[in-house]
Computed example of a mutant assay.
Amino acid sequence: MSETVLEVKNLSKYFPIRGGVLRRVVGYVKAVDQVSFSVKKGETFGLVGESGCGKSTTGRTILRLLEPTDGQVLFEGRDIAHLSRRALRRVRRDLQMVFQDPFASLNPTMTVGELIEEPMKVHGLYTKRERKEKVREMMETVGLDPAYVQRYPHEFSGGQRQRIGIARALSLRPKLIVADEPVSALDVSIQSQILNLMEDLQDQFGLTYIFIAHDLSVVKHISDRVGVMYLGRMVEVAPKRELYDHPAHPYTQALLSAVPVPNPRHKRERIVLSGNVPSPANPPAGCAFHPRCPKAFDRCRAERPEMIHLGGEHYVACHLFDEGAQAG
């Protein structure tokens, strides 16, 4: 599991802000701002943060559903961020996505069979008979009755629709799947079923996941390593156990302090952040978190922190861990 399958280097995605009569560009929303991380073959890399922190945009930009503004996305050593559309088409078989809303992501005019078969048709795989057989095989794999192959998405529950989305993503036998909050729209009882299904499929097909979520308890259940984002920037990356037991960044500490503990006798100090999340159209200078950080000092307001190695696979972007930092 030491082989790196995906490496993201200084990835940025800026959206232009237009104003005036001529609709000229007057600024940019920095949704993703110089994000870097790597994903190992066969692991689940969790990507967490508050709503609006840029984690979903990061996932979509990695897959080129959104065009990157800057940076590199190395998939198996090949930079796919700058491939032509024709060259990218050949790579797309190995990169698939499971979307957050299992209803909005499925065409309501297509049957389940057509939805799962469509990627295979687009890539010219198999004969018509083979594709029909593959559809039934994929339905069984994700726990759906193949007898429902002619039904439409609205005839299924939310959990079943998400299984359809997973089957569609798996139909091309991809190597990497970006799962964008795949269980956040589901009931809690159904969430566990989908998470267990994804883990079983990972073992069965040797899949690698980027699992995007805001629910830290869900991420803890399924992830091997976790990256924490704030205002479009990566602030901490660590193995799951290390991150949850020894969070280093003040923002990570605040997030974890809000996670409910299923033990009424266990008391955890709640860290309440002051102020609101700054606008990504006008991010603060220095560390993006400094306006809300209870431990911020002068250097945080002036200089953007770089990732610092804390040992093992634990990295944090915080001046508190820089040898030259002096609180004052």
Rank of each mutant, 00 (worst) to 15 (best):
D70A: 04
I116G: 04
G113M: 03
E117S: 09
T127E: 01
F103P: 08
K134N: 05
G124W: 13
M110D: 09
G124D: 06
E133Y: 06
S84R: 11
F75N: 07
V112T: 10
G113P: 00
Q100W: 07
G124T: 10
R86I: 04
K128P: 01
A81I: 01
Y126K: 08
D79W: 12
E76N: 11
F103R: 14
R86K: 13
L74M: 10
R90M: 03
V98K: 04
H123T: 00
M110L: 08
D79I: 09
I116N: 01
E118T: 01
R90Y: 10
G124P: 10
G124V: 03
L95R: 06
R85S: 15
R85A: 15
R92I: 11
L106P: 15
E114Q: 11
F75I: 10
L83V: 13
G124R: 07
R92E: 04
E130S: 01
R93G: 15
L106F: 15
Y126V: 00
M120Y: 03
P102T: 09
K132A: 06
P119Q: 10
K121C: 08
T127C: 00
D101W: 12
K132R: 04
E76M: 06
A81C: 06
M97G: 06
L74R: 00
Y126G: 01
E76T: 03
K128D: 01
Q96N: 09
Y126D: 05
M97Y: 11
R78P: 09
S105F: 15
R89H: 14
F103Q: 13
G77L: 12
L83I: 12
Q72R: 10
H123M: 06
S84L: 04
L106N: 15
F99E: 06
Q96C: 07
P108F: 12
R92T: 10
E133S: 12
G113S: 03
L125C: 05
P108Y: 11
L115M: 07
D101N: 13
P119H: 11
R131I: 00
F99C: 10
H82N: 15
R93S: 14
D79S: 08
R89A: 12
R93P: 15
I116S: 10
P102M: 05
A87S: 14
E114M: 02
Q72V: 02
